[in-house]
Amino acid sequence: MERDLKGYEPIEDFSREGRRRLVEERGEEIRLLLDKAFTEFLDAEPDVSLAAFSFRGDDPVSEAVEWAVTRFATADLDPAKLSNGSRSFRLFTEVRFWLSQKAGRPGYDRLLAAAKRAPDAAPPQKNAAAGADANPEVLDFVRALADALPSFQARTCADLVGYWLEGTKRLRRDWFGWHDRGELSEAAERRSKKQRSIHTHDAMFRFLCCFLELIPAASSAAADLALELTCLSGCPDIPPYRVPDRHVCGELARFGVRGPRQVSALRKEGARSFLHRCLDRACADLDTVRGRVTSALARKSLSATTLHALEIENDTALRARLVERCSGADKEECT
């Protein structure tokens, strides 16, 4: 297919069935574009809250992304009302279009102005980080996050620390006033925005595994060990930021592993296992301040893009659990 001057692929079929099929076939790519667009929109408009547009969950960006995907697949969209450039994948970078779809064009400017005047309207009792300056449990949590970074670097590499800091900058700023930015190598800085997004989600997942003390793996399962050896035991500071599968075959030989392809399969199985445990923690221990902040960190660190970063994007059951994960403050709401 020919692309426009900015490299966006045209959308050839705007029928409802055509759009639904496009989401089925290329939903991950669509979600990546939307996630990046909404994130950059909020970075450029630091006073704006998506709560004004009824995205009031723990992860409003992911909520907005899923709403936009559903809207694209199911709504009546007239391509004649779109500019020529918007009849392409560029549409998934146009935050104003999607917010106007949500609120109506006349309401967009009004709500945007209102959003700039009002902070995120999360109920105080559900905002685990509220009063961070005064609450010693939250201050202890901040110290624990900072203290975890050196061991996280030892189990991964310097670039992944930078990616984690980049991926959590809004969260850390809004919750704790922690403004440290990530530093990346020159090679990492040259990578595309899509590639950096993948590495950022990978870093946030791996940090959770370290912070939640899931490693060293309590299980002796081959899959858990494969993930730990390749992704959480120190790795070269170059993409894909993991120990090559062929280098750990010997340590997995007792499980009958004979080559890199078997290691790769086990690593992905281990990623699923660890991700389920991270999601379990996102639903647990909600009766203490520390527990609620830990739960919120887990939820905000994970998204559908995490599956892409871990090369398990075809796991539909795990995707469903991620999308619907722990949206409320009560344990009963976790699935």
Rank of each mutant, 00 (worst) to 15 (best):
M1I: 03
D4F: 01
G7W: 03
G7I: 06
I11F: 02
I11H: 03
S15M: 03
R16E: 02
G27R: 08
E29W: 03
I30T: 02
F41G: 07
E45C: 08
V48C: 05
S49D: 02
A52F: 05
A52P: 01
F55G: 12
D58L: 14
D59Q: 14
W67I: 13
A68N: 09
L82T: 09
R87H: 05
R105P: 00
D109L: 09
R110Q: 11
P119S: 11
D120E: 14
P123G: 01
N127D: 14
N135H: 02
C157I: 07
V161D: 09
Y163C: 09
Y163F: 15
T168H: 13
T168C: 03
D174E: 15
L184N: 08
E186F: 00
E189H: 12
R196I: 00
L212F: 12
E213N: 09
S219W: 02
C231A: 13
S233F: 01
D237G: 00
F255L: 08
R261C: 07
L279H: 09
R292F: 07
R292G: 13
T294L: 15
A304W: 03
L307E: 04
H308M: 10
E311T: 05
I312C: 06
E313V: 01
N314L: 07
A320P: 00
E324S: 13
R325T: 09
